[in-house]
Amino acid sequence: MVINRDHENKPEASLSTSTSAGENPPVAAPTVEMLGLTRHFGATTAVNALSLAVPNGCIFGLLGPNGAGKTTTIKMLTTVLPPSAGTAKVAGFDIVRDAVDVRRNIGYVSQMISADGALTGYENLLLFARLYGIERRLRRGRVAEALRFMALEDAANTLVRNYSGGMIRRLEIAESMLHHPKVLFLDEPTVGLDPVARHAVWDHLRGLRNDFGTTILMTTHDMEEADELCETIAIMHLGQAVAIGSPSALKVQVGPDADLDDVFVYFAGGSIEHGGGYTETAQIRRTARRLG
């Protein structure tokens, strides 16, 4: 995928202070850094002193059983939910003190399939281009770029209520990339998509990272997705990270021919014993669906 970004980037190139990227990407300060991040809901501790670092340009997967605290973590990192304790920095900005700066630098795709059905894809994108504060002279170009990048040009003027699930997801990713965010947060980006749409989303996410250097933090319940797409995964359980590493390293840790399912069960499998029976799981699912 060839993306021409030079027309708007050239004048600022002289400001660049970055080290030249050699064969290996340079070791940079992490783009997302959580320090003891904690969130209580009444008696529940949804996220419990979580400390994680997501390197720049990484596709990072948060895994864990229902109710592990993945969505709550993302809500705190996207400044929607204030932490009960601890701090986090996103793209160098504190999620509480510099919330607006954080929001300028992130994109977010929620757990729900959620573009506005009463508008066309183009209108949806133009709204977000304005809300993200993209300069007027660049707006149309950025919308066209996002449509092209997500292969939605033909559907640009169709009402979104006539889109397929896969197209809506791609439109949402398009919305979240308009302002070239440094970090993209995706909550279960491929849930409910057919295999073809799922692979398309993966390709587009890889493309975003490769062409724009976007750091991607996503949650998933799909082990194949984690294995294929994520370079680093963290398995969460009861609000804490119980394992961190590359999928292959974690597999080796668990056993000679373990797959990622085995890794998941090994680190978080106790969830039924820990978390109670069917009713609680059903309730968590319902809450998760309602709250995104």
Binding site: S18, P25, G133
Partner: peptide
């Protein structure tokens, strides 16, 4: 593709995003 992953300097906002416009202008636009 490695060149694309290189570290970018930290701006208050990504490129093309007007970070320093008047709060009132942004408010009216939004």
């Amino acid at each position: 593709m490695a060149e694309a992953i290189q570290r970018r300097p930290r701006f208050a906002a990504p490129r093309g995003v007007s970070a320093n416009e008047l709060a009132m202008t942004a408010f009216i636009r939004d």
